[in-house]
Amino acid sequence: MAHKLDAEERTTLVEGEEDARPMRAGSGHKPPCYNVQTAVDADTGLIVHHEVTDEPTDRRQLHPMASATRESLDLEALTVVADKGFDNGEHASACERDGIVACVPSQRSINNQGDGTLFDRTAFIYEPETDTFTCPAGRTLVRKQLHRKKRNVTYASQDCSGCALKPHCTTAERRFVKRHLDDDALNRMDARATPAMMKARRCAVEHPFGTIKRMTAGGRFLTRNLKGTRTEMALSVLAYNILRAINIQTAIA
């Protein structure tokens, strides 16, 4: 077990359920479990694609789930709506590249400058023609460093001396601002995530989860490890879709 922990760079391992991982739940953590993903058709409530993974968060699930859903439905274009847990710049760009219209709210609204009262990044205007930022005082921040792993670029002010707004901007010698490589795609994805869209998402996605949990005595899997859990979830989705189809047909009749 120690060798497996080292080989897979993990911090936890459950004997008898070695594929499971601790999952995030708000500010805390759940016991080791699995991450169930579903794509639900908003018109019918049918689950058109699903997956069970050992990913601890949803941040790397947007593009693979959207792509698989479009493929299973044989569509040229697709609009997907997801909650802020799926916010990912690389996936936002990948969706646009593949003709998938993603609507996901951004999680980048926290002001982490100083004590939270200093100018945050939104106070700086990006100039795409020169690849620079303009600060509230009108001074220029130039490109300084590219961080490929984090997919962002750091911009730095050339001179903050004598600036009347500096006490409201930074406590350092000069101000730095970071911009994500996929910033434009992230902004477009966030703008599409309107309150109406997010309300429609909750109505469409949460209902099947609630129904399946009720059908399975609270939503706890009875099988072991990822292969067995995927099989159990596939049967649960099949049962749900059959019941949903019957209800739709009954309503039409």
Rank of each mutant, 00 (worst) to 15 (best):
N112L: 05
N112S: 09
Q113C: 11
T117I: 05
F119V: 01
D120M: 02
R121I: 04
T122W: 03
T122Q: 14
T122H: 13
T122D: 15
I125T: 15
E127L: 08
P128F: 09
P128R: 08
D131L: 03
T132E: 13
T134M: 03
C135E: 00
C135N: 01
P136H: 05
P136L: 01
A137N: 06
G138A: 01
T140Y: 02
R143C: 13
R143A: 09
R143L: 14
L146M: 08
R151V: 05
N152P: 04
T154D: 10
Y155K: 06
A156G: 12
S157P: 03
Q158E: 15
G162F: 00
C163F: 00
C163P: 01
C163W: 00
L165D: 10
K166R: 14
H168F: 11
T171D: 11
E173A: 12
K178I: 10
R179L: 07
H180N: 15
L181V: 08
L181H: 15
D182F: 10
L186K: 13
L186R: 15
N187F: 10
A191L: 10
A193H: 12
M197W: 08
R202Q: 15
A204V: 07
A204W: 07
H207S: 11
H207V: 08
F209H: 15
M215A: 14
T216D: 09
A217Y: 10
G218M: 08
G218A: 06
R220F: 12
F221S: 06
T223A: 11
L226K: 04
K227N: 13
G228Q: 12
R230I: 07
E232L: 10
E232P: 06
